[in-house]
């Protein structure tokens, strides 16, 4: 299976921020979710992949093309939308559609019309009159309608009302039908990512905390409530990411859950009350707080 993109040893320094030693790749046909707080480096990562920023060191390959040397070939099959990207205010959406269509041969007018209807956008309206949500939807529509092989979306659902968010996720789900098309999208709404992504990547402070397939990710983490006076020593229990205690109740967040672990805990005198799966947000926050790899 070929890769949608591959970053290796990528570093990018700014004045107050640096993306350090990123090694990340994604197989074709996948959806990857980037999770990180604001300023973690998600947008920079997407910009490097989209050819809008050059990495200081390291190699970047997008859809089999070296960036930036073969960026034209890569960009031709790339859909790219970041949160701060804007369209031309004085022009209508129709003008933008014609402009994009004239550049990309893959433009699908029927699909575009379908998206217009679903996103509730008016083609003859000037962009100046668009609300934030409409602008985001317009940008996504322009990207979706040309059916790019790799979609790079920065916060595609941020600032959208619930109905619009739902429409966007539905359109994003269309992409899943085609196994040659991939999506990399960032969001701080972990619910979106939890639902749609095959792979999840945590970014924090310019480094990758974790990047794994979602199911095993969610499988490995458990929130364990036990009863008793036993409190684990983190050094001796590397599987445990966080511990909280209140009286006889101990809450453990476990990053490598297994039946064996529970047994070992029981031998320490802990009475296990529950061991529930955690949601992505919880996992992410715990990971960041624990300051280590997930």
């Amino acid at each position: 299976m070929s890769t949608a993109f591959a970053l290796s040893g990528v570093t990018k320094r700014y004045e107050n921020f640096a993306l350090r030693d990123i090694d990340l790749s994604m197989p074709e046909g996948q959806v990857m979710g980037l999770v990180g707080v604001n300023g973690a480096g998600k947008t920079t990562l997407l910009r490097i992949l989209g050819g809008l920023a050059l990495a200081d060191t390291g190699t970047v390959e997008v859809l089999g093309h070296d960036m930036p040397a073969q960026q034209v070939a890569a960009k031709s099959d790339l859909g790219f939308a970041t949160e701060d990207m804007r369209l031309f205010k004085t022009r209508t959406l129709r003008w933008h559609m014609d402009f994009v269509r004239s550049i990309y041969p893959g433009w699908d007018e029927v699909y575009a019309a379908d998206l217009l209807r679903r996103f509730d956008l008016r083609a003859e309206q000037r962009l100046a009159g668009f609300s934030h949500g409409q602008r985001v939807k317009a940008l996504l529509m322009l990207n979706f309608a040309r059916r790019p092989k790799l979609l790079l979306l920065d916060e595609p659902t941020t600032g959208l009302d619930p109905v619009a968010r739902d429409e966007v996720l539905e359109a994003l789900a269309d992409v899943l039908r085609d196994e040659a098309r991939s999506v990399l999208f960032s969001s701080h709404n972990t619910k979106d990512i939890e639902q749609m992504a095959d792979t999840i990547t945590f970014v924090h402070n310019g480094t990758l905390l974790a990047s794994r397939d979602k199911e095993s990710f969610l499988d490995d983490w458990r929130r364990v409530i036990c009863h008793g006076s036993w409190v684990p020593d983190k050094a001796a229990w590397p599987e445990i990411a966080a511990v909280r205690q209140n009286g006889s109740i101990v809450e453990l967040k476990v990053r490598q859950f297994s039946a064996g672990l529970l047994e070992r805990m029981q031998t320490q005198g802990a009475e296990i009350r529950s061991a529930d799966p955690m949601n992505l947000e919880d996992i992410f926050v715990t990971t960041v707080r624990a300051g280590g790899a997930a």
């Binding site: 959806v31 789900a173 992409v175 039908r177 979602k214």
Partner: peptide, 17 residues
Amino acid sequence: IRELASASRVSVITVKR
């Protein structure tokens, strides 16, 4: 798997599992 994933809006890997 892809059809179901797309229609139900969940990731492919979830349906696989």
